[in-house]
Design a protein around this nucleic acid. Structure first.
Length: 484
RNA sequence: GGCGCGGUCGCCAAGUGGUAAGGCAAAGGUCUGCAAAACCUUUAACGGCGGUUCGAUUCCGCCCCGCGCCUCCA
């Protein structure tokens, strides 16, 4: 399916094909995103998915849509309860640290804050109300104080993941990993009775804690309505998590729960799935500590279209870093270099072409590779035009504006990596120099060069280099600097 | 076993029934006190075997290889 002019097409897991975006509320797109479970630091695989949904929402906004996005934070689950108990602290206190880390991480990666970032433990009442609704319809049963959803009562079960649930009972894998008693192995817990010593809530439906799936249904519908435009998450969540969300929500409301399901493919590392046993499990902080920049990681994670598995490698990081450099160098050149007066209509046309191609790429199921190619094409053509002196002074602001527009989606052009890393307490250079110090040293070096004191000028160049500052002597005699 | 995804230059990665984007790397060049950086240019690719077709990397079949999901999972 080819996109018509201005149409945004997206791949919907439910139909397994691309469909045009058609929000329920004109001019506004409502998105629910499965956020992190804060039992530990999020890993880069998580951020692949979060960066995808960030690119998506940024593109919607560039297209003039209002975005209402809800992201949940799952701050109660088995691992959290277990870890908090082991640490001897209340779960709320245990998760605080990881929520804070998550917020810092998304800030470092320029992932925009969703309009609503909501915690599961702040919505117990909403979950209880939803469970009561399901109980009233006779879709649940109690067992050992826990409440289960009876899947046999929902005939569309499996429509998202296309899974054959009838085979699950005799499945090749173990079926019942839970210690709770269930009528049918396929049924899932809406509400779990407390085990001894565990944190629990005293509610109208009894003491206990919510199951994972009910959290998302309750919070999504509370903020976004019974039917949501877009629900995003990692591919692994399609079954059973999203399947269960559909069963609960549609049973409760009788309405379609989600119009478009968007699933981001997984990231693998050196050809293998991330796992702790293989020792290839990276958090963002691991990578920052190894010297990689936030912009490098963001670029790498967004450069591969979201429905393609991304093989995360050291080489990939180097390539991403250099690609970002090329874009930043281009903008720096546009801003610093002096061009002949006037404007070249050809340049204006060329920039408009890039703009259209960038947009078309993203409108085609968020094809970031296509969108990036449009930018790099422009960079090369404009650089060549500048070399040929066909690029004029009035063209520069137009080109800068185009790059800034592209960056409203990419968010990698502004060189604030050093600042972001320092904010996380990670020092990036051996000697930290203030911008004013750097500029003073450059001025001193320029003076030395003018008096042909190359010994002194090379000394300053080395000193700056040791502090992570790279100098670039340009053709017109000016000097640019940047962080390595 | 069931379901699904993918194999395009050295690496990453678009795309198409008829001249195969882009990035990184490499090579050459421009610039420079030197150097670096930057920029330009160039090179080079559709897993295998059949089939359909005037023509297949693109459609169909089989095979080989890699990966994912099948109630922890982004």
């Amino acid at each position: 399916m080819a996109a018509k002019l201005n149409e945004i097409i997206l791949h919907n897991t439910l139909s397994n094909r691309v469909e045009p975006l058609a929000p329920m509320h004109p001019g506004e797109v409502r998105i629910y995103t499965c956020g992190p479970t804060v039992y530990s630091f999020a890993h880069i695989g998580n951020f692949r998915t979060f960066i995808f949904q960030d690119v998506l929402r940024r593109f919607f906004r560039l297209r003039g849509f209002r975005v209402l996005q809800v992201m949940n934070i799952t701050d109660v689950d088995d691992r959290i309860i277990h870890n908090a108990a082991a640490a001897g602290v209340p779960i709320r206190e245990y998760t605080e640290k990881y929520i804070k880390a998550f917020l810092e991480d998304i800030d470092a990666l320029h992932i925009e804050m969703p309009e609503e970032l909501v915690r599961a433990t702040d919505h117990i009442d909403d979950m209880v109300a939803l469970i009561e609704k399901l109980q009233a319809k006779g879709l649940t049963y109690n067992s050992d104080g826990s409440i289960y959803f009876r899947i046999s009562k929902f005939h569309d079960y499996g429509k998202l993941s296309k899974i054959d649930v009838s085979g699950m009972q005799a499945g090749a894998r173990r079926v019942d990993v839970d210690q709770y008693e269930k009528d049918d192995a396929r049924d899932f817990a809406l509400w779990k009775s407390p085990k001894s010593g565990e944190h629990f809530w005293e509610t109208r439906i009894g003491a206990g804690r919510p199951g994972w799936h009910i959290e998302c249904s309750a919070m999504a519908m509370k903020y976004l309505g019974d039917t949501i435009d877009i629900h995003t998450g990692g591919v692994d969540l399609a079954f059973p998590h999203h399947e269960n969300e559909i069963a609960q929500s549609e049973s409760a409301t009788g309405q379609p729960f989600v119009r478009m399901w968007l699933h981001a493919e997984h990231l693998i590392i050196n050809g293998q799935k991330m796992s702790k046993s293989l020792g290839n499990f990276y958090t963002l902080r691991d990578l920052f500590a190894k010297g990689y920049k936030p912009s490098t990681i963001r670029f790498l994670l967004l450069s591969v279209p979201y429905r393609r598995q991304l093989n995360f490698t050291e080489d990939g990081l180097i390539q991403a870093k250099n690609s970002v450099e090329r874009l930043r160098n281009f903008v720096a050149r546009l801003q610093a270099e002096q061009f002949a007066a006037g404007s070249n209509p050809e340049m204006e046309k060329r920039i408009e072409k890039a703009d259209a191609e960038f947009d078309a790429g993203l409108a085609d199921d968020v094809n970031t590779a296509r969108a990036l190619a449009a930018i790099f094409d422009l960079v090369r053509d404009v650089n060549a035009a500048m070399d040929r002196h066909e690029f004029l002074q009035q063209d520069a602001p137009r080109a800068v504006a185009a790059m800034e527009k592209f960056d409203s989606v990419l968010a990698v052009l502004v060189d604030d990596d050093d600042q972001k890393l320092r904010g996380l307490g990670i020092a990036t250079s051996k000697v930290q120099l203030a911008v004013s110090q750097i500029e003073a040293l450059i001025e001193e070096r320029n003076a030395a060069r003018r008096s042909r004191d190359f010994k002194r000028s090379d000394e300053i160049r080395r000193q700056l280099s040791d502090s992570g500052i790279l100098l670039e002597d340009t053709k017109d005699g000016s000097v640019r600097w940047k962080y390595k």
